[in-house]
Every structure is written in structure tokens, then in C-alpha cells.
Design a protein around this nucleic acid. Structure first.
Lengths: 336, 336
DNA sequence: AAAATTATAGAAAACGATATCATAAAGGTT
DNA sequence: AACCTTTATGATATCGTTTTCTATAATTTT
């Protein structure tokens, strides 16, 4: 068994109160005594028990992170952002993957609360009603990443997905495209999918373009998903001149599919991605994508959360990420 | 403040001992009393405090994971494997990224021990002496992923990197290649880099091929790193007919660099990857790679660790991952 | 030199649970 | 009717800390 504060006290011939004072740098200790205690700590190899401490202080210095799937770079970068900022400020993170399954999200939230996390960050695709209830049914501060609490007052950090999608489609339009398809993540299970779809539709409308139901497809987040969606899209008699994909992996899949069908990108069809991960940059042709910083998103979530934990003040605030389009090779200007 | 066991006891008009019995399903409780307690729990919204419980039980049901960088898919998959297996068995994970910085690894280990983790999994590139000392200076079970404790008796889960590299180089040789370069991760800071290099050298030797210092380059794990390393490699007067890259991202970088230099893969030069991530599969040309399952690695680490936690038995054992070569388009058979 | 103040250190009560031990009531045995 | 079981419950010590309150010694003030 490792040494306890009691062992140190015995060893240094003082009371445990004094040892505690030394550990916590409370000034009312005589220098000589302090030295004796420090020495005893070294000799016994004593390390404070954070659990006991947490119980007494009612503070665990841990942040719970509920996320979709750490395996997907989109979320991973966010998680790393959270972890770095948290670690720099003396907090640790407990991680729960949920794959977006509501039941698991709820269980994760309950568990994190039982473990007395000082705060919770939710990095998911959708905020379900039941999760929100669970999260609000406590006093733990909560910050949302990626999703926005539209009616409620939970602070959130996210991209203005609607505007970003709008801008990307607008960019395609500026390049002379009038027939624009979309390969999106499921707008029902993913909040940002919904928003990006709205942006897409709005841009079409604003520029007087027609919406074609048959050019709108949904894939999971994967390359294969993009491939399959593109395959369906290309089965139509008339096909668009450009496809707006709402993530890079799906854009790559779409690109591969087009190639497979004997088309060249961007000569025969233009494709755009979203997120600007290395997939897009190093693809050939390199994919035009919309850049925004997921790491920053995570870090910002952590920052807001820790501030709320430390001040105890709750305040609804939304932090919108910057974004910009990175123009590469996958879009052809077909304007006259 | 949320309800405590005391509140439930008062509400149900029983002692806290009885409430505790109900919570923990200890049979000696009258059915009627039990119902009353259950009802009180529901009414008060009581949730047990895991911290208090941990203190008393000397068990936190958390596993500490120290890993290199969650942002790199190689580690991420491992982390997810750990998390899933752990979650299925009632454990949670605390995650610490270290970027391989020794000091941070040590700090992470100390922190996890203070937080009374029931066990620690190390998913890193190298086991430093100081980290090992820190890890062993306690009674917490430790399992190593990716690295092997050659002299010590810590259990580990890893790929037989030497054999795998050997097989990959052998595959190139079987395809007629005699001039084979290598783009490796740093063998000094990464244990598996060292091992893969040994396998590479051994294969060259076994088949009577010459080793060319100038064809051996090192990159970080990234695509850019592979690109830069390839650039140096291609600056030689004589260049190899094949390059063995010890991860997929670097292979992609190397491929892009070769293309940039006006070469075609695999017509002018063959390239192989390692790990078989989607990068390799969806690249064009698709990259021949060595498949092994990082998710399984993580899950196996968790399995071994939890077994050790629960039985209290420590035993040195090594679990070696299966692997196989996935043949794709990036290798040309140049045999006569 | 007595009183008041200050500097140190210790005793003990929390924090919220679990589990041991003790106790009381009910039923069974002779 | 006295005793022994069995069943159900409560009181309480404990886990390893922090912190308040108290106590003592040392110092200063008068």
C-alpha cells in the first residue's frame, strides 16, 4: 500500500493537519517543521489521493467529454483541443464515445455526473431532447460543440454551417455552375447536415437555380459513403456539373466514383469538400474545401466551460468559428 | 444540491444502511421497505456519488490511457478499442496526450496514479526508463500497447514489427526489386520504427541485397513528412526501384512527391505503405500496405488490463497481432 | 510581571458512501 | 416457557483528505 497522509505525519512527528498545510502551501507552518514534513514526504514517497481530496473539496478537476466517435478526425481534433486546453488548466478529461446513439449519450451523461465531473462538453451531431434533459437536470456546467442550443441557453461553439454552405455553393455558382448536386450527411441525425442543407438550398434560391431532388444524396461520413452516394447521383439521366459534398471524405469518395465512371474531375464534373482535412489537400486532384478549425473549437469549448466552472457564472454565449474556402483543383470554372 | 443517500434515507424513513443495501442489491431487505426506498430514490432523483464510493471501495473503475496523440488515426483506433472494451466492462477512461514528450508522459502517469486509476494503458512510441520507473513505482497494473517491455515483465500487445517489415520487403523482392529504399519513422524515438528498420535490413541481407545509406530516410508520421523524405531520397544520382514506407501517410506523401518529380507509380517506382488505413485504400494509385488491427490492439490491452485488475494476478504475457499484406496498385512486378 | 497578542500545531468534524457489528422482533423447537 | 434461529434494520467506524476550532508556547505590550 502506498503512503497516506497519516504515514507522513507519523514519520515527521506532526499531525496530519500540518502535513496537509505543507502540501497545500498554507503559510502558517514553521520553516523547520515544513522541512521535516517535506523530507518525510520524500522518504515515504507520498502522493496525495485525488479521490479523497475530490470528495472533501467537492471538485474533481475532471471534464467529461461526450462525443460521437473519436475515430473520426472531425471529432478527434475537437477532443484534442479540449484535452490540451484542459490539461493546461489543471483539468483532465474522461471520454465517452456514443456513435450518436441516444441511449448511450444519456448513459454517458449520467455516468459523468455520477463521477462528479466539474463540467461536461458535448461534441455530437445532434442534441436530443432526452440528453438535454439529463444534462440540465443537474448543476454541472455544459458546453456544446458543433451543435447549437437554439431554444435553450447552453453555450455553444460551432461553425455557422448555413452561411458556410451558402458560401461554398455560391463559389460554385460564381464558377458558372448552374446544376449543383449535394452529397450531405444525414440532415436528420446531424445538426450541421441540416444547416448545410439549408445553406445549399438558400444559395440555389438566391441565384435562381433549380433544386433537383434526384441530385441530393446522403452518405455516412465515410469515403465509401461518398462513393455510394455519388453512384446513385450519377445514375440519373441528367447529372449536375458540380457536387457539393459536406465533408472531405465523402468528397474523395465521390471523386473516386466519378473516375470509376470514366469521368474526370474537374473537367467533367466539379466536386467540393468540407472541413479541409489532409484528405482534401493531398487528394489528386486536390479538393477545394471549406476550412475551419476543429481543434480551436474544442479548445474554445474547454475555455468557456472552465471559465464557467471557476466563476460559477452561467451565461448563454455562442462562439462562431471563422472559415474560408481553400481553392484547389477540383472545381472548374465553366462560366462563359 | 443533488440528493445524498442521507436524504433518501430520511425520505423513506429508514437508515442509510438500508438505502445502501437497496442500491447495491443486497438481499436482506424486506420487499416493502425496498419498494419504499426505491420510491424515495425516484422522488429525490438520487444518484450515487461515484467519488465517495471509490474512496470507500478503493476502486475507481477508471483506466488511465497515456497515448502519443489522439489526433493520429494510428493511436485513435487503439484508444477507441480501449474505450469500447472498457465501457462494456464498466470502466471509463481518462485520456492523456503526451506527443511523446518524456516529461509529459511521466506527469501523466503520476496524475493518473493520484487519480487512483485502477490500471494504466500506455500507447506510445517508446517506453522511456523514467516512465517505466514511475509506472512500476506503484501497484497499479500496467499494460503496454505498441511497445514491448523487452527486459521487464510488463504485458504488451503489439505487432511483430520486425517480421512484418521483413515480409513487406520480401514481397518487394519477390516482385523483382533489388534496389529498395526506406522511409521510416524515427527509429530512435519510435520503438516500432527501430523494429521495422531491423526487419528491412534483415530482408536485404537474407536476399543478398545491398543497403544504401542514402536511400534511408526518416519522416514524422505525416504526409508532408513522407513527401519531404522522398524528395531527399530522389535527389540521389541513383535511385531505388521501390520504397518501403513504414506508414500509409508517408507512403502517400512519397507517392505525391514522385509524381511531382514526373515519375509514375508504380511504373517508374514502387511504393508500399504500412497500417492499411483508408489513406492507402483510397489513394490513386491505391497503395499496397500491411494490414493489422489497431482497434483490436486497444481492445486487447483493455482486456488484459481488466483481467489483471479483477484477478489481481500479474503475469507477463505478450499478445502479437495478426497481419497480412494487402496488395494493391502501387507495386510493379519488375522480375524478368 | 501580568496581560494581550501572535505564531504554531493538534483534535476532530466533515465529504458521501459501504460494511461490520449489534439489536429487535418474529418464528420454531423442545 | 425458555431458548435458539432467522429476518430485518439501525448505529457506527471507515476510506484519505481539508479545515475549523482550540490549545499551547512564544512574543509583545503595558
Amino acid at each position: 500500500m502506498s503512503a497516506k497522509i497519516k504515514d507522513v505525519a507519523r514519520e515527521a512527528n506532526v499531525s496530519i493537519a500540518t502535513v496537509s498545510r505543507v502540501i497545500n502551501d498554507i503559510p502558517l507552518v514553521n520553516d523547520e517543521t515544513k522541512a521535516r514534513v517535506l523530507d518525510a514526504i520524500k522518504r515515504t514517497g507520498y502522493k496525495p489521493n485525488a479521490i479523497a481530496r475530490s470528495l472533501k473539496l467537492q471538485k474533481t478537476n475532471t471534464i467529461g467529454v461526450i462525443l460521437f466517435d473519436i475515430t473520426r478526425i472531425y471529432f478527434t481534433l475537437g477532443a484534442r483541443g479540449v484535452e490540451d486546453y484542459a490539461a493546461d488548466n489543471g483539468y483532465n478529461i474522461i471520454l465517452c464515445n456514443t456513435d450518436g446513439v441516444k441511449d448511450r449519450e444519456k448513459k454517458a451523461a449520467e455516468l459523468l455526473m455520477q463521477k462528479q465531473c466539474d463540467g461536461i462538453i458535448f461534441l455530437g451531431t445532434l442534441m436530443s431532447k432526452s440528453l438535454k434533459e439529463t444534462l440540465l437536470g443537474t448543476n454541472v456546467p455544459v458546453v456544446l460543440g458543433l451543435v447549437e442550443d437554439e431554444e435553450g441557453d447552453l453555450p455553444g461553439v460551432y461553425l455557422d454551417n448555413e452561411a458556410a454552405a451558402y458560401d461554398m455553393v455560391k463559389y460554385l455558382i460564381e464558377n458558372g455552375h448552374k446544376d449543383i448536386g449535394i452529397i450531405n450527411v444525414d440532415p436528420i441525425t446531424a445538426y450541421f447536415g441540416k444547416k448545410r442543407r439549408v445553406g445549399y438550398l438558400k444559395a440555389l434560391q438566391d441565384f435562381g437555380l433549380e433544386y433537383h431532388e434526384e441530385w441530393s444524396h446522403v452518405g455516412d461520413f465515410t469515403i465509401q459513403g461518398g462513393y455510394d452516394a455519388m453512384k446513385k447521383l450519377l445514375q440519373n439521366d441528367k447529372i449536375p456539373t458540380a457536387v457539393f459534398c459536406t465533408n472531405d471524405d465523402m468528397a474523395l469518395g465521390a471523386l473516386r466514383c466519378a473516375e470509376k465512371m470514366g469521368m474526370n474531375v474537374p473537367e467533367d464534373i466539379s466536386i467540393t469538400g468540407f472541413n479541409d482535412f489532409s484528405t482534401a489537400r493531398w487528394s489528386k486532384p486536390a479538393i477545394t474545401s471549406l476550412h475551419h478549425d476543429m481543434y480551436e473549437l474544442g479548445a474554445e469549448c474547454a475555455k468557456i466551460l472552465i471559465e464557467e466552472i471557476q466563476t460559477g457564472k452561467h451565461e448563454k454565449r455562442d462562439y462562431k468559428l471563422d472559415y474560408y474556402i481553400v481553392k484547389r483543383e477540383s472545381v472548374k470554372d465553366i462560366g462563359k
